[in-house]
Structures are given as structure tokens and as C-alpha cells.
Simulated scan of single mutants.
Amino acid sequence: MIKLEDGMWNKIWVPDVFFRNEKRADFHSVTVPQRLLRLYSDGRLWYVSKITAKLSCPMKLKKYPLDTQKCPFIFESFGHTLERVVYKWLPNSVEKEPFEMPQYQLIGWTQRDCSQNYTAGAFPCLQIDFLLKRDIGFYMIQVYIPSILIVILSWVSFWIDIDAVPARVPLGLLTVLTMTTQSAGANSHLPRVSYIKAIDVWMCMCLLFVFASLLEFALVNVYSRKEFNIWRRTNSMMPVQNGRKHHHHHHHRHGSDGAEEEIPLKKVVTTPSGISLHMNGKSDYASLREDEKRFLIEHKQKARHIDKISRKIFPVSFILFNVVYWVTYFMLPDD
């Protein structure tokens, strides 16, 4: 075996290999051209060159970020057909050195012959498919765990009193806006594909849960006010302007002897909620106040019962969604 001097590769024939899916490639020339040419006693030549190449890898992102990608590396002859040149894999033609990638794990590779016919003829071709599994650790920390915490935060409103509107409404709006911002950030560095990705399903469902929590409070609030309005109509009471808490209207008439007498006509009372009511008859204020207080407690208990049901339905539904989501995308085969 003889190592030939540098530059001898320019004086002999070398294969016209090119990378079909190349985007950019460079020879290494620091500090000397990193090429090797050896001549064996049986006449064989061994030519080696070190190249750094940037290759295109068509990705399918339906399972992103739980996906496994197949990235090809394609060698093909530019001008020689199969009648003159044949490419074959050597034993142990691919060797893996210890290295780590920030987002992927190299789990294996496959080799095959990709020779095909063109208009000018059949050209030799070899292809290596590298199997890259995306590391989910980054997405668990930056996407999944924060979104789970936001959904759980939206359930806090179920434990806040229904009368605390200034507390429950901002909490619901804050979680909805936070989920919208997080969804936009998670997709900002991805190509705009026309199909639904796994992360889109996750973000949409989390947004749906926090939005449903906000709608639940609206439902409870409307239900409680509707019940009170129905109660007012069924008790034949006519609201008037707020006045003093307890005063009488009198009607004066003249008797047969010319003397005036007062006849009580109506009594106006103000309820604890600030509503003035005309009451016919001799019902006193104490009894009306107890009736209204009892009704307010009853219909608020009904509204609170909806909150109690939501405390169970929302967590159980979210857990079921998680089971279906993770099982489906982990067991779904890659295309």
C-alpha cells in the first residue's frame, strides 16, 4: 500500500458523485486539503475525502412533537450510467461516532439501492435513511406542563363564590389569553402545513377547557339572576323607585258627618337587595324579608351546585383526554 501525494486525485479519474438532496456542501481544507489517495499492490485505489454537507429532509409533522423522522442521504452519479459505473455498499459502510443532538436521537439507519431510469438512461444511486426520534423533553417543559397548569388554574374559579364576579371573570379571561399566546408561540417556528399536528390538537383542547370554565361561570351567573326574576314575577310585586325602608300611603275621604278619616292603601318596603316593592294588605316587612332571604339562599345553592358538579366533570374529562391523546399518538405508526 502506497499513499500518493496530495494533488494526484487531479491527475486520475474519480467518480462524479453528487448528493441529490444537497443544499450546500464544502470540502475541508484546513490546514491541508483533507483527502486521501492510496494505491494497493493489486491495483486498487482507495480515495477518501472529508465533506460537510447540508441536506434537505422532507418531514411529516402530523405527530409533532411526538414524531420520528426519516432523513435521506442520497449518492448518485452525475454523468455515468449503470453501463459504466456501479455503486455498491461496503461492509460496515456506516459508522456511528458518539455524539448528541439537541432535539433528536439517532435510533438507526437503513441502506438501499435507489438507482432509477431517467430520459438520458439509468444512473447508479445509493441511499441511506437516518431514523431520527425527536426528544420530547424540551416540549414537556416548555409546552405540555405549562398548559396543564393553566388548565388547572382555570378550575380555581369553581371554588370562588358566585357573587365574586370581579375575581372570577379576570381569572377566566387571563387563562384564555395565556393559552392563545402559548399556542401561537409553540407554532411560530414551524412550517405552515395544511394538516393538523399533534401539538395543535393539544393546544386546541386546552383552550377549549379554559374557555369552557369561563362559560361555566356565565351560565351560573345567568341562571341565578333568571331564577330571581322569575320569583319576582310570580309574587305580583311591582318595583318602584327606592325610598325609605318603611312608610305608608294614605287615602283621605270625608265621612257623612263631614269628618276626615285615613285609610291605609299600600305599604312600600325596601328589601335587603335594594328593591322597593308595593305590598297590598297588612303583610309586615319582617315576613317579606325572611321569604326573600330564604329564596335567595335556595337559588344560590342551586347555582353553587353547578360549581360542585364542574369540580368533578372538568378534571375527569381532562384526564380522559390525556389518556386518549398520549395513547393514540404514541401507538400511531409513523408514515
Rank of each mutant, 00 (worst) to 15 (best):
H250K: 06
R168L: 11
T180Y: 10
R244C: 04
G243K: 06
S256R: 13
S224Y: 13
G172F: 10
A186C: 08
H252Q: 04
A198R: 01
R253A: 13
A198Q: 03
H248V: 13
H247L: 04
P166S: 05
S188M: 13
I263D: 09
A186M: 08
L215A: 15
T180F: 09
W231K: 01
C206D: 08
M238I: 10
N221T: 13
W202A: 06
F209C: 05
V220I: 15
D163P: 00
A218D: 05
Y223H: 11
R232Y: 03
M205N: 02
G185K: 12
H189F: 07
H251A: 12
G185L: 15
F209Q: 04
T270G: 03
M205R: 01
H249A: 10
D257L: 08
N242L: 11
F158E: 01
G258A: 07
H246E: 14
E261C: 05
K226V: 09
F217P: 02
M238G: 05
I263S: 09
Q241L: 07
K266S: 10
H247C: 12
R233V: 03
R225S: 07
C204M: 03
M179N: 02
S188W: 11
S194M: 00
L214A: 14
H252M: 06
H252N: 07
G258T: 07
K267P: 01
L174P: 00
R192Q: 14
T271Y: 11
R192H: 11
E260Q: 11
L171I: 15
N229W: 01
L265D: 14
E262A: 04
L214C: 08
S273Q: 11
S256M: 09
P170F: 06
H249I: 13
K197Y: 02
T178H: 00
R244M: 07
T178C: 00
T180D: 09
Y223L: 14
I160W: 06
T270S: 12
Q182G: 04
L173P: 01
C206P: 03
W231R: 00
P272N: 12
F158V: 02
W159C: 07
R168H: 03
E227M: 15
E262K: 03
K226A: 10
D163E: 09
L277P: 03
K245H: 04
D163S: 06
D257M: 07
F217H: 06
V220C: 13
T180P: 03
R253N: 08
G243N: 10
S256L: 13
S194E: 01
V165E: 05
E260M: 12
I196Q: 00
H254C: 05
I230F: 05
H250G: 04
R232P: 00
I196A: 00
L277I: 15
T181R: 05
L207D: 02
K245Q: 08
N221R: 13
A259W: 03
R232A: 03
R253F: 13
A164V: 06
L214Q: 13
F158T: 01
G243I: 05
D200Q: 02
M237L: 14
D163H: 05
P272F: 09
A184G: 09
C206H: 07
V268H: 14
R232S: 02
Y223R: 09
G258C: 07
M179K: 01
L214T: 14
S276I: 06
I162Y: 08
P264C: 08
T180L: 12
C204T: 02
V268P: 04
L277G: 04
